[in-house]
Design a protein around this nucleic acid. Sequence first.
DNA 1: CCGATCTGGCTAACGCCGTTAGCCATGACG
DNA 2: CGTCATGGCTAACGGCGTTAGCCAGATCGG
Lengths: 173, 173
Amino acid sequence: MAEHLTPRAQEIAAAARALLEESGPAALTMRTLADRLGIKAPSLYKHFPDKHAVEVELTAQLLAETAEVLEAAEARAPGSPEALAEAYRAYALAHPHLYCLATERPLPRAGLPAGLEDRAALPLLRTCAGDLDLARAVWAFAHGMVILEIHGRFPADADLDAAWKRGLKALHA
Amino acid sequence: MAEHLTPRAQEIAAAARALLEESGPAALTMRTLADRLGIKAPSLYKHFPDKHAVEVELTAQLLAETAEVLEAAEARAPGSPEALAEAYRAYALAHPHLYCLATERPLPRAGLPAGLEDRAALPLLRTCAGDLDLARAVWAFAHGMVILEIHGRFPADADLDAAWKRGLKALHA
DNA sequence: CCGATCTGGCTAACGCCGTTAGCCATGACG
DNA sequence: CGTCATGGCTAACGGCGTTAGCCAGATCGG
C-alpha cells in the first residue's frame, strides 16, 4: 500500500479496489463505495479530495504491483523476455478492471510516488539491454495484447499464446 | 456513412461525431448532442434506442474508415508493413477521441455491419502473407503504440518514430 | 479539569446524467 | 376526410459527483 495515506484513507482505497475488481468501473461509485464502508458518500471527501484521487491511488497500486511482479519474474529467470511477458500478462488478466482503470487514461504523474513509473519500466529495460526503442516496442506489444484480450477484441478462436510467442520471438530475435 | 440508418439518424450521428472529436467523450452527452441539433434530449430516442447505439454507430465509422485508409495504403505500397503502420498511426492520431471510444471497450459485433471487422483486418493479414499469429502480434504492437501515445503514457522525450521503426523491423524481419 | 480544536461522521441540496411516459403538431395516404 | 406514422415537446425519475453546513467525540494545551 502507500504510507502517504492516512490509515482510514487506506481502508477506503482497499474497499474501492475490492469494489472495482468485483464489479467493474461502472460500480465504482462514491455512494456504493461509502455503502461498503458503512458511511455516507459525502464523508469520503474528508479523506480524498475527489473520486479521481481514489482512482489515482488505485493506479499507483497497479503500478507498484506490476513492478513487483516483473522484478520477481526477472529474479527467477534473468534476461528472459518470455518470463517477463508471462508475468505481465498473468497479472493483468488477473486484475482486468484495475488494469483498464490504471491504463486507459493519461498517467497522473503528479499524484504518483516518485520513481514508481521508472521502477515499473526497469525490468523490461534491463532485459532489452538498455535499448530504449526496443523496450518501448515490446511494452506496446504487451500492452496491446493484454488490452485487446481483455476487451474481447480478438476473434473468439484466436490462439493468443501463439501470437504472444510469435511477437516475442520476433522482437527479441 | 451507413445506409442502414435513417437520414435523420445519420445527421445525429454526424453531430455526435463532431461533438466527440471536438470536445472528447465526456462532452458526448445526450443533452449537448440534442442542443447541437436544436432539439431536446428525449427526441433523440426517436432515432436511437439509447446512447450506446450512437456510440456503436461511431465505432462502425471508425472501423470503416480504418479499412479505407489501410486499403489505400496497401494500394499505394503493396506488401509494405511500414506504409500500413504509418497510415494507421496517422489516422488514429488524427481522431484520438474517436479511436478511444471505438477501441477501449468490447467490440459490439452484433451492431456492426457484416464483414466490417474482417475487412479492416484484411490489409494487414495480406501484408503478413496470411500468417495469423504475426498479424495479431503486429496489430497489438500498433494498437499499443497508438493508444499509449494518445494517453501520454510514454515519457515526454521518447522518440516514438524510432520505437515504431524498431518494432516494425523486428516483426517483419 | 476545562475549553479549544481537530477528526470524521451526518443531512440536505445542487446541477448534471441517461432515460421514460405521455402529449401534440404536421403531413402522408387510403 | 379520417387515420396514422413521424418527430418534436415537457415533466419527471433515479443515480451520479460534489458542496455547504452541522455536530459528536476525542485530544490536548493551559
